[in-house]
Design a binder for these strands. Structure first.
Lengths: 117, 117
DNA sequence: CGTCTATATCGACTATTGTCAATGTCATGA
DNA sequence: TCATGACATTGACAATAGTCGATATAGACG
């Protein structure tokens, strides 16, 4: 699991000046950015992210997501966890439901890390 | 290997309107984008990309890259192939050397797919 | 309390991936 | 022509990741 003890997207913004096309990435920066992008580099997670973003109120619960992506509930839950730990989604529990929402600016930070203008 | 028969970054620009945060990605679009991002989501490849981009003349040969990243020549060659097939690098052979260069705009297309402003 | 219902976690299995040593290819130069 | 040097390909292996079924947890509501 490796777990990278709690440094996620927030830390990328810390070393936000590193823009990939500027000067060579250090091994640590590359590891961080790769870890963040790995969370994004999966078709199921990209779809989940886009569905959540396009949902009414900007949030969706697991039961709304399992059918559109055609995956089992545990698998969807797993993907949502990955996205949450990577700093892309927030999780709010109301009643028995867990609502996931896109964290504003999270994707932009990745864009900037890639050297977006 | 799956190989996705020759549709890479160029095709993302074709369906460039799909911005992830707009409307939900189709399964095909998600597959394409994930495939492209998977090529980026590796520390070694990110470092290779940034080193190439920061090199004099914007290009570098394999022999220049193998030492900075601390990987064997076959491994570096493999990563460069992945990046090239994903549309991020171009390959030019001069003499015995193979020069790799960052393809302009390739990273920007990914940025835009992520919904960059 | 007991029973749904919604999620999360666990355990297992398979597929994919990153890596290297060995080998192949091919252009250069003696 | 033969040797050398730069790179690519192959084959193998360990580690990782995606998936599911089974099970656990935990609110809500009788």
């Amino acid at each position: 699991m490796t777990e990278i003890t709690g440094l996620e997207l927030t830390d990328i913004s810390a070393s936000c000046a590193t823009s990939l096309v500027g000067e060579p990435l250090t091994a640590e920066d590359a590891e961080e950015l790769a870890h963040t992008m790995k969370a994004l580099a999966d078709p199921a997670r990209l779809r989940l992210l886009s569905i959540v973003a396009a949902s009414a109120g900007g949030e969706a619960c697991v039961c709304d997501l399992t059918e559109p992506v055609g995956l089992s509930q545990p698998t969807v839950s797993h993907h949502l966890k990955v996205l949450t730990e990577a700093g892309f989604l927030s999780r709010t529990k109301r009643g028995t439901w867990a609502y996931y929402a896109l964290i504003p600016g999270a994707l932009d930070r990745v864009s900037r890390a890639l050297g977006a203008a």
